[in-house]
Design a protein around this nucleic acid. Structure first.
Lengths: 209, 209
DNA sequence: AATTATCCATAGCGATCGATACGAAACCTA
DNA sequence: TAGGTTTCGTATCGATCGCTATGGATAATT
């Protein structure tokens, strides 16, 4: 962490890098990497260009740090759901319902930054698109691992493909992200999640109905 | 259609507008609206800027015509599936399996133009993003209508929400679009579709297995 | 052949993009 | 207090963005 190891001397920063990064993250979340201009970042972060470049190197590095911050502050529900000591079906249920909440917060941009941050880009930003794909693939892999554990625990049928089902669950979350961006409410996303859960090969502890 | 009513006189076009529009469509499909520059369009369409602007007015109009062309030439499977004289479950099945094919053609960009064309944009391109959202909402509405017909025909339980299930199916297709963009094969997308179909409240005519 | 209309190619428009040069200001160490 | 280091604010940089002015070329119409 750069902002922890103050080397020595020099004029102190006149702003809080974490607050600035937070503003940048929300802007990237809303408009994506390429469509977010330095002018927009300047206004949202309340900084001058040299302040931004001195603290975050360049736009690409700023975006990557925004990704890290998003991962740490906005989608903890995922790791929580996948690591909770509950049956596999319940874990996936918490994952999808958590996404329903996280993708439709009123004070946040809709959907997931990992999806809307850079889906279609210019050739110059291909590395950014690849980075986001890596994040999405990592999520999918984490789900697959949880499902494999579920198979080992007897929660899921032995003949099931953990990778295949993980692709479905990750894809459902991506679809929820698009629906959220189209204005779906948290209730609609929850209903979406419940419907998606019906496809799981587990004896669903159905919602109280 | 402008290209049908030749008014009279004048020097004839030295290019085929439909071929040029096709090249533009594929470029927008791959890179999205904003990230596709006029330079890229020039090279792909084999035209000079004045030729493009004379034939298609401006970049935004060109994109809108590309959307129409995409709708007409690339996703006929959807209307076909929804209007086929088959039970509702089979219609949705054809819809999702058709999407699996259409989103992973080797000679085409992955996914759906209506999703990747403009998901996160600059404020200047908000109208374009809204236009794409309108297309997505229209697809969802078409599915909801087919589901309502299915309820009337007794294919689906009466207490089911056609709109809610349509949101799920449309969202699943959006999710498949993202997965296709991440390199999912047609087989993986078909498996995705089959899993998603298991959530439908119909006696599934399961795949021959 | 003369007129009119449309398209072609060359060149370049103003605006915005991401990123910086510069020198003054503000802190620490010695 | 002097030296060293970092950030500050101001003013831009060259490149690319979408787009167009201009004038010659090629057709149908009269």
């Amino acid at each position: 962490m750069d902002n922890l190891e103050k080397p020595r001397g020099g004029r102190p920063r006149a702003f809080d890098p974490d607050r600035a990064l937070d503003a940048a993250m929300h802007l990237f979340w809303e408009h994506g990497y390429e469509a977010t201009s330095l002018t927009m970042l300047r206004e949202a972060m309340g900084l001058t260009p040299p302040q931004i470049y001195n603290a975050f190197t360049d736009k690409e590095t700023l975006f990557r740090k925004a990704l890290e911050r998003y991962h740490q502050t906005e989608i903890g529900f995922a790791l929580e759901a996948l690591s909770a000591p509950v049956p596999t079906g319940e874990a996936i249920r918490r994952l999808l319902l958590g996404a329903a909440e996280a993708y439709s917060r009123p004070d946040k941009p809709g959907g997931c930054l990992f999806v809307s941050g850079a889906l279609a880009t210019s050739p110059q930003a291909q590395t950014i698109a690849d980075e986001l794909k890596t994040y999405r693939k990592a999520s999918e892999a984490a789900i697959a691992e949880r499902l494999a554990d579920g198979k080992a625990a007897g929660d899921l049928p032995e003949e099931l493909s953990a990778e295949g089902l993980a692709k479905y669950i990750a894809g459902v979350m991506n679809g929820m992200s698009i629906q959220a961006r189209d204005g779906a409410s948290v209730e609609e996303l929850r209903a979406f999640a419940e419907t998606a859960l019906a496809a799981l090969p587990v004896e669903g502890q159905k919602p109280r109905a």
